[in-house]
């Protein structure tokens, strides 16, 4: 058994539960922007309104991501 693995297990044995969500704050923010743009792009292609919805959804994704990050950091940070 690799000692590093044992060390990891030892370190992780007492986590601050929901605090683990903070690990994902950065990637969640990035993912929200990406999802916003992709959703907007897909809807634009469907409704033929390019680039309106892509822009709006991208902005909403960014705003939502910042809000969510702030919310998580202030609650568990």
């Amino acid at each position: 058994m690799p000692p590093v693995f044992l060390f990891c297990v030892h370190v992780m044995k007492t986590p601050p539960q929901m605090g683990w969500l903070l690990v994902g704050v950065g990637s969640h923010l990035a993912a929200m922007v990406v999802v916003g743009f992709v959703l907007g792009y897909a809807l634009d292609a469907w409704l033929e309104t390019r680039p309106l919805l892509m822009f709006i959804f991208g902005c909403l994704g960014f705003v939502g991501g910042i809000l969510k990050a702030h919310q998580m950091l202030s609650r568990w940070g």
């Binding site: 993912a31 909403l60 994704g61 939502g64």
Partner: peptide, 21 residues
């Protein structure tokens, strides 16, 4: 309307960030 879009984005971002990380 804004809530619907934002919550949809937020929910879809969860699996995406999990996978991308």
């Amino acid at each position: 309307p804004v809530n619907i879009v934002m919550t949809t984005i937020e929910e879809l971002a969860k699996p995406l960030s999990l996978a991308l990380r």
